[in-house]
């Protein structure tokens, strides 16, 4: 049995705007996705902002009712059997809100232990262990309002683990952490997986998914565009070349021309301090750099280099080509 299964999972949001003439707009946040996470697997849901990651997670942890489709956690349906799902899943969400500000971290953990029915004896042992795990030992009696963003984030993680759940879901857990804190957290997540937990993680950092996950599902605009091991995803772009062009003030239509050029599979634009970096992907030997530059007629161009594709390029092409 898979630990997490989603079948044709869909979710829309209704948004009303306008004061006198009210208009209702339907936002298709998740458009019918399928995926399965095996028991003990560390699975990544990778996608840019607004791709539908949080929406998917919230359906799994029973906070949102799917518009259609089904999802199960260890065999329990997230709508019909929400209470069972709530007991089996630990939910850690990104961001710095979500604790009682006026109380100490310790009080927050005690309160949630009670909600999760953790017996007092077990609490006595587990809370210090978790504080140690997330590096909050010694700060637990301070009020949460004085905690830094990273400390709050780590408090959320401790809270998500209070009832020792078999399935752990983390929504962008490293967001807002400094690089050292983020690396420590990734280490903790890897430890959890090693201890036999099933972990579902969302992130918009490709390298994070690459470093941690057994398998990755890439989600873009509410749809899963690829699923597989990091190596498998990379192989999809193995026969390509990436040409990096430094450009100064390339207008929209020049980039569009580049995108439509014969042989070009994708163009991503990264804004740098004074320049743009155009990342052009094309099958090996299919285009000449000179031809590409021809499409940028009139745009000042800096350094141009060609290189082998990385997993990041695989991700970029998956997210932009679909």
């Amino acid at each position: 049995m898979a630990a997490i299964e989603a079948e044709n999972l869909r979710r829309t949001y209704k948004q009303t705007s306008g004061f006198l003439r009210r208009r209702t707009k339907t936002i298709e946040a998740v458009r019918g996705i399928d995926f399965a996470v095996d028991e003990g697997e560390l699975f990544g849901l990778l996608g840019p902002n607004g791709a539908g990651k949080t929406t998917t997670i919230k359906m799994l942890v029973t906070l949102l009712i799917p518009t259609s489709g089904t999802a199960r956690v260890l065999g329990s349906d997230v709508v019909d059997d929400a209470r069972t799902v709530r007991r089996k899943i630990g939910y850690v969400f990104g961001g710095d809100r979500g604790a009682y500000e006026r109380l100490s971290g310790l009080d927050n953990l005690r309160y949630f232990s009670e909600l999760y029915g953790v017996p007092p004896k077990v609490q006595k042992q587990r809370i210090p262990e978790l504080l140690e795990l997330v590096g909050l030992t010694g700060r637990e009696r301070e009020r949460v309002e004085g905690y830094s963003r990273g400390m709050r984030q780590r408090l959320h993680i401790a809270r998500g683990l209070l009832h020792d759940p078999p399935v752990i879901v983390l929504d962008e857990p490293t967001i807002g952490l400094d690089p050292v804190g983020a690396r420590e957290l990734r280490h903790t997540i890897a430890e959890l997986a090693r201890a036999g937990k099933t972990v579902l993680l969302t992130t918009h950092y490709m390298y994070e998914a690459d470093a941690l996950c057994d398998r990755i599902a890439v989600i873009a605009k509410g749809e899963i565009v690829a699923t597989g091991t990091p190596a498998h995803l990379k192989s999809a772009v193995a026969d390509r070349t990436v040409i990096e062009i430094e450009a100064y003030g390339a207008p929209e239509d020049a980039i569009r021309r580049l995108r439509d050029a014969p042989g070009v599979t994708s163009v991503a634009v990264e804004d740098r301090e004074h320049a743009q970096l155009l990342l052009v992907q094309a099958p090996q030997g299919s285009v000449l750099t000179q031809q590409l530059l021809g499409h940028l007629d009139g745009v000042r161009v800096g350094r141009v280099t060609a290189r082998e594709p990385t997993l990041e390029d695989a991700y970029v092409s998956l997210v932009t080509e679909n």
Binding site: T62, Y91, F112
Partner: peptide, 18 residues
């Protein structure tokens, strides 16, 4: 406002008991 409504609802007891 505190952002605790979600974790509270996502916990096992019926929300009325919370």
């Amino acid at each position: 406002w505190q952002g605790v409504l979600e974790p509270l609802v996502a916990s096992p007891p019926p929300y009325a008991l919370i």
